[in-house]
C-alpha cells in the first residue's frame, strides 16, 4: 500500500548523495564571494562577509565579455549550422530510408565514442594549414561536427513519430520534398527541433577540449577563459571561482528555463 512512499533512511541517503554531488559547485559559488585570503583559509570559513571584489577583478582583468561573446557566437552559430545540415539528412533517413540507413545512423553515433584527443593532431594540422586556428569560424565548424550526430539522431526520432501518411498525402498533392520540409515537417517537428537546438547550444557552450586546444586570446570561449586562470603565476581561488560562476551562470539559467522542453525532447519515443 505504501509502496509509493520512500523510506526515511532512503530519503536521507538520497539527500546525502545529492549534496555530495552538488557540493563542488556550491563551494565554488561560495568561494566566489570571498576575498583571496578567506578563500585559502584553513580551516575553510563558513561564515564570512560576502564581497563582490573577485567578480570585479575577474571582469576587469580578463576580458570576460569578449570570451562570453565568443561563446554565444560559437554555440548559436554551430547550432544553427548543425540543424540546417541535420534537418534534410534526418528527413531522408526517416522517410526515404535506404538499405544502409540504419548502419549510417549507428556509424554516426559511433563517432561520438571516439575520444576527441584521438583526432586532435590531424584537426590541429588541418586548422593550422587552412588558417582556422584561433578563429571563431573554425570553432563553429568543429562544434557543428561534434553535435551533428546527436542532432541528426534527435531529429530522426522526432520525424519518425510523424505519420508517414501525412507526407504521402502531401506527395499525392504534388508537394515535393523541399516544400514538405518547409510546410509540414518544420511546423510539425518544431518541438523536436527546439529540443535538439537547446541541447546543441548547451553542449557547444560547455565544450572545452577543442576550445582550449584550437584557440588563444582571439577566439577563445568561456571554457578557455576559465582555463587561463590556472596560470603559471599561481592560483587565485576566489577570482577563479568568480570567473567560473560567470562562465557557468548564463547556460545554467538557460538550462533551467528550457528544462521542461529538454526533458520532453530527450525522452521522445521512449514511451508510446
Amino acid at each position: 500500500m505504501n509502496e509509493q512512499r520512500a523510506s526515511l533512511p532512503g530519503t536521507i541517503a538520497a539527500w546525502v548523495v545529492a549534496f555530495l554531488m552538488v557540493f563542488p559547485i556550491l563551494w565554488m559559488a561560495i568561494t566566489a564571494f570571498k576575498t583571496e585570503s578567506e578563500a585559502i583559509a584553513i580551516p575553510p570559513l563558513l561564515l564570512f562577509r560576502p564581497v563582490l571584489s573577485s567578480f570585479a577583478a575577474a571582469l576587469a582583468q580578463s576580458g570576460y565579455l569578449h570570451f562570453a561573446l565568443n561563446s554565444i557566437i560559437v554555440s548559436l552559430g554551430s547550432t544553427v549550422l548543425a540543424i540546417l545540415i541535420a534537418f534534410p539528412a534526418a528527413y531522408a533517413m526517416a522517410f526515404q530510408p535506404g538499405r544502409h540507413t540504419q548502419d549510417l545512423l549507428v556509424w554516426m553515433l559511433s563517432t561520438k565514442m571516439l575520444p576527441p584527443v584521438g583526432v586532435l593532431v590531424p584537426i590541429y594540422l588541418i586548422f593550422r594549414d587552412t588558417g582556422l586556428l584561433d578563429t571563431v569560424e573554425g570553432l563553429v565548424i568543429v562544434d557543428t561536427l561534434m553535435n551533428l550526430p546527436i542532432v541528426v539522431w534527435m531529429l530522426f526520432s522526432f520525424f519518425r513519430d510523424i505519420p508517414r501518411d501525412i507526407l504521402e498525402a502531401a506527395h499525392m498533392d504534388g508537394v515535393g520534398p523541399r516544400k514538405q520540409m518547409m510546410h509540414l515537417l518544420l511546423p510539425l517537428a518544431s518541438p523536436g527541433i527546439a529540443s535538439a537546438a537547446l541541447l546543441a547550444i548547451i553542449l557547444s557552450w560547455n565544450e572545452a577540449f577543442w576550445s582550449i586546444n584550437l584557440t588563444a586570446a582571439h577566439a577563445g570561449t568561456l571554457a578557455a577563459y576559465i582555463a587561463r586562470y590556472s596560470a603559471p603565476e599561481g592560483l587565485f581561488w576566489a577570482k577563479l571561482s568568480a570567473a567560473s560562476v560567470l562562465a557557468v551562470a548564463p547556460i545554467l539559467l538557460f538550462g533551467c528555463l528550457a528544462q521542461r522542453r529538454l526533458v520532453r525532447g530527450l525522452t521522445v519515443g521512449a514511451v508510446k
Partner: peptide
C-alpha cells in the same frame, strides 16, 4: 487515407 492523414 485510412488514417485521414490530415495536416494537424
Amino acid at each position: 487515407f485510412q488514417s485521414y492523414a490530415l495536416y494537424p
